[in-house]
Design a protein around this nucleic acid. Structure first.
Lengths: 120, 120
DNA sequence: TGAGACTATATGCACAGCGCACACATCGTC
DNA sequence: GACGATGTGTGCGCTGTGCATATAGTCTCA
């Protein structure tokens, strides 16, 4: 990388969409469309990223160094040449952790304010 | 109210700033500037709302019915006539609870993704 | 065979929300 | 009376968003 990554805290709060994208890539490399499906699946259909939002978010995350695009292609019989695959970087992971910590703090405040009804 | 309040879920996700404003008003009615100070205090200085963001957010929240402005003034010896006091509405409270529930779900996903280091 | 749905990426457009800077007035204190 | 803190507000530009649209290959089913 040309410039050093800025402090993870400078990017917070992360747009919800961005955080979902990072979670989708936490365990596996995926291409854009697969990210949309993964997010929808793990949120039980509650969060459905629109295509416009997704692809522009990815562009931004690449520029900021949270994601990198893979040059390696899967085996030809599994591949679809239209796809572009992405992987979360170490920096991206640290930003995601910072955001998770921020959310945890926020939730503690919400609980103190009586906004959290159930246990949680 | 002229129109019925839309489903609380339609407003989610709430901007972080909005959620902080609602938390500041959860227990006490406050005027704008006091909200800025309260948010800064309860976040240990981590979140400092800019004036521009705050007053425009309040305008929006009034229009959406999450807040109402108080007509009653405090006792004259405690008052500052420049101030405008706000109170969270029942609808605002229900929206805040919906947002808190969303954050709790998000945090569960973050934990499953390994982004939550500590216990939390 | 052809219509329609799904997969896949990308851009144009309009709008919401944000920070920064600025404006303006009052209040408290020295 | 000067100065900083209090208090509310607007102008401007930037980022991030959804919706619509473009393009194109694949798959299914009548």
């Amino acid at each position: 990388m040309q410039r050093p990554d800025p402090d993870a805290a400078d990017l917070l709060p992360l747009p919800t969409t961005t955080f979902h994208i990072l979670m989708a890539l936490a365990d596996d490399d995926r291409h854009g469309y697969a990210i949309i499906q993964d997010v929808a699946e793990r949120t039980g259909g509650e969060v459905t990223l629109s295509a416009g939002t997704l692809y522009r978010s990815i562009q931004r995350l690449l520029e900021q160094g949270l994601l990198e695009e893979l040059t390696q292609r899967p085996a030809p019989e599994l591949d679809d040449e239209r796809r572009r695959y992405y992987r979360i970087t170490a920096y991206g992971r640290s930003v995601a952790k910072a955001e998770a910590a921020r959310l945890a703090s926020l939730l503690r405040l919400a609980r103190a304010s009586g906004f959290l009804t159930g246990r949680a």
